[in-house]
Simulated assay, not measured.
Amino acid sequence: MTDTQSPANPPMARGAAVNQPGGRSALQHLLQGERPYMLYVAFAVMLIVFSLASPWFLSIDNFLNIGRQTTLVSIIAVGMTFVIISRQIDLSVASTLALSGMSASLAMAFVANNWVVGAVAGLGTGALIGLINGVLTTRLEIPSFLVTLGTLSGARGLALMVTNTKPVIITNEYYFAIFGEGSVLGVPAPILWTLGVTIAGILLLHYSVYGRRVYAAGGNPTAALYSGVHIKQVTTLAFVLTGTLAGLASLILSARSHAARPDVVQGMELDVIASVILGGCSLFGGRGFVLGTLLGSLIIGTLNNGLVLLGVSSSLQLVIKGAIIVAAVAFTRR
């Protein structure tokens, strides 16, 4: 992706966060960016409006339902945050999820009916697709938009081919418990996976050398290159991370469905990218944070849930959802 420079938002300003100390508090991460408080205010207002409009919205069961519904988007969006901060984009995450789920289910069906085998196959497939995206983008210098548009089609087609468009049934009870139906202290496993991935993403992006290099690669590639940052390696690892998390999301979805289907979550990449941008990440690279991405995902999930509870038609839901996302991004960018 190409950068658009302007006096109001110069590259060096976007990359300045790289030079800040790593031991920053969580509150500073919550408050970084351009007017991020508008995002929190918008979320609070949304909660109040839906609570007043629907007697079923303000309940623990409904909030747990929102958490389960947003799991897939939230997990993949953590990886997408790294990709977009490094000034790239990945359109193939939904197809990667579909192919990874098929790999996991086929491995358990024909190799060994063991959840570890399925998990390794699913995560490995996601990581491999991410590696392909990263290598083609950095080594052949093809824009990531075009590369991942190609893998979007290729991975989806391969997922449809391997079983002739038929689903593959999963029977391993441990697989269901670990990734889909289990719980700890009443908290469903998918939500626990989301929390775990979010915490790991925060530590990796905001408190590690690799995270600082991601900001440098996206904020000011020229300065980063002269500072000794291996931009190609950093970018490739960001794609691998995103692919791996898409693989994890496939395990959660297939465990919840007791089967893997090749035609699932078509178009989900748009919700993933919207969550990252809504959470304060810049499409031009160099700016973003994981907690903002999680909040962006929760805003989209809460909006979907609230509109369903209010009985809004599906067509009107799309109109309202699009308008609110555009308005929220406009306010947070002012």
Rank of each mutant, 00 (worst) to 15 (best):
251 L>V: 08
77 A>R: 02
206 H>P: 00
74 S>V: 15
47 L>F: 14
270 L>W: 14
333 R>C: 02
12 M>Y: 14
72 L>F: 04
308 V>S: 03
24 R>G: 11
115 W>V: 12
11 P>I: 07
28 Q>K: 05
174 Y>P: 09
75 I>W: 00
230 H>D: 15
169 I>E: 08
83 V>Q: 08
158 L>W: 11
223 A>H: 07
128 L>K: 01
60 I>E: 12
133 N>V: 06
100 S>H: 08
70 T>E: 03
329 V>W: 10
157 G>S: 09
315 S>E: 13
278 L>W: 05
293 T>L: 04
228 G>F: 00
60 I>S: 02
109 A>C: 05
303 L>Y: 06
68 R>A: 03
284 F>W: 09
29 H>W: 07
311 G>W: 00
145 F>W: 06
333 R>G: 08
94 A>S: 13
19 N>Y: 15
48 I>G: 03
112 A>T: 11
142 I>T: 04
114 N>C: 08
320 I>Y: 00
242 T>D: 09
192 L>N: 05
257 S>R: 13
97 L>M: 15
334 R>V: 07
256 R>F: 04
227 S>E: 13
308 V>R: 06
228 G>R: 01
82 F>I: 11
104 A>R: 09
22 G>T: 15
105 S>K: 11
105 S>L: 05
52 L>P: 00
131 L>H: 08
9 N>Q: 13
323 A>W: 10
16 A>W: 11
4 T>Q: 12
333 R>I: 03
13 A>I: 14
